[in-house]
Amino acid sequence: MPSYEQLFENNRRWAAEKTKGDPQYFERLSAEHNPDYLYIGCSDSRVPANEIMGVEPGEVFVHRNVANLVNNVDLNVMAVINYAVRYLSVKHIIVCGHYGCQGVRAAMQPRDLGILNPWLRNVRDVYRLHKAELDALADQEARYARLVELNVTEQCISIIKTAAVQRSYVNGGFPTVHGWVFDMRTGHLKDLQLDFPQLLRGVQEVYNLTDKDTIF
């Protein structure tokens, strides 16, 4: 683990490396911010958004929290989604969970977690919604991995419920919402292949926040 002072030395080397072959790199970076992607992921330091996606700074707008949750009363994530959709006009919103998520594992334990209780209740609600499927899995690790995937899917649905996303899709045909899971054992991303139009139709039956009777 590098020392605190070493972090600044690392930064200087990184900046020098970036400008070595491209003297205008930081000039361009500071000029504009027009990413096509909003990434909502877990705060786990082992899952760095830019690196696992293979993109440069400026190409993805990032929000991270414990267990990659999209809670409609969390003004932080709601502000990020609204800004990304209404002002950056992102074309894709990605929720990325990861196998081995400690937040999801903690939510699986029937015990008092103090200040984490209200936050992780969102994951426990996902477990409750899918209890029959999860309890049918005899292997604890398989159940854990499946809850990670289901949690990502439910957070994608929470994004689709927002007025900003619905209105943008009606008016411009974007953004599309995607669910991913990162596997730290292989370094690979798994696309959960969510049927976004079908999810949107299902959500609109109850959560239609547009001025249209139907999105399609």
Rank of each mutant, 00 (worst) to 15 (best):
S3V: 07
Y4P: 05
Y4T: 13
E5N: 15
E5Y: 11
E9V: 11
N11K: 13
W14S: 09
W14L: 04
W14P: 12
A15L: 07
A15S: 03
A16Q: 14
A16G: 12
A16S: 14
K20E: 14
G21W: 06
D22Y: 14
D22N: 15
P23Q: 08
E27M: 13
R28N: 08
S30T: 15
S30D: 01
A31T: 04
A31M: 04
N34W: 10
D36E: 15
L38I: 06
Y39E: 10
I40W: 09
I40P: 13
C42P: 01
V47K: 05
P48Y: 13
V55I: 14
E56W: 12
E59A: 02
R64L: 15
R64P: 01
L69W: 05
L69C: 02
L69T: 01
V70P: 06
D74N: 14
D74W: 09
D74I: 09
L75P: 12
N76I: 04
N76H: 12
V77N: 07
A79D: 15
I81F: 04
N82A: 11
R86F: 08
Y87T: 01
V90D: 01
V95T: 08
Y99H: 03
G100A: 01
G100N: 05
G103W: 03
R105S: 14
A106P: 00
A107H: 08
M108H: 06
P110H: 12
G114N: 03
I115E: 10
L116H: 05
L116T: 05
N117L: 03
P118W: 12
P118E: 07
W119V: 15
W119L: 14
L120E: 07
L120T: 02
N122Y: 13
V123T: 05
V123Y: 02
R124N: 02
Y127G: 06
Y127F: 13
R128L: 15
H130W: 09
K131Q: 14
A132K: 13
E133R: 08
D135G: 00
A136S: 15
A136P: 07
Q140P: 05
A142L: 11
R143S: 06
A145Y: 02
R146D: 01
L147W: 00
L147H: 00
V148F: 04
E149P: 08
E149G: 01
L150S: 09
V152E: 10
T153C: 11
T153G: 11
E154L: 00
Q155D: 10
Q155S: 04
Q155N: 15
C156S: 10
I159R: 07
I159H: 09
I159D: 02
I160F: 03
K161D: 10
T162H: 00
R167I: 03
N171P: 01
N171I: 02
G172I: 08
G172Y: 13
G173V: 00
F174G: 00
T176S: 10
V177A: 04
H178N: 01
W180P: 03
W180G: 06
V181E: 01
F182P: 08
D183C: 01
M184P: 00
M184I: 11
R185A: 11
R185L: 06
T186G: 12
D191M: 07
L192Y: 06
Q193P: 07
D195Y: 11
D195S: 07
P197H: 01
Q198E: 14
Q198V: 07
L200P: 11
G202H: 08
G202E: 15
V203Q: 03
E205A: 09
E205I: 09
V206R: 15
V206S: 12
V206T: 15
V206N: 08
Y207S: 06
N208D: 08
T214Q: 10
I215G: 02
F216N: 12
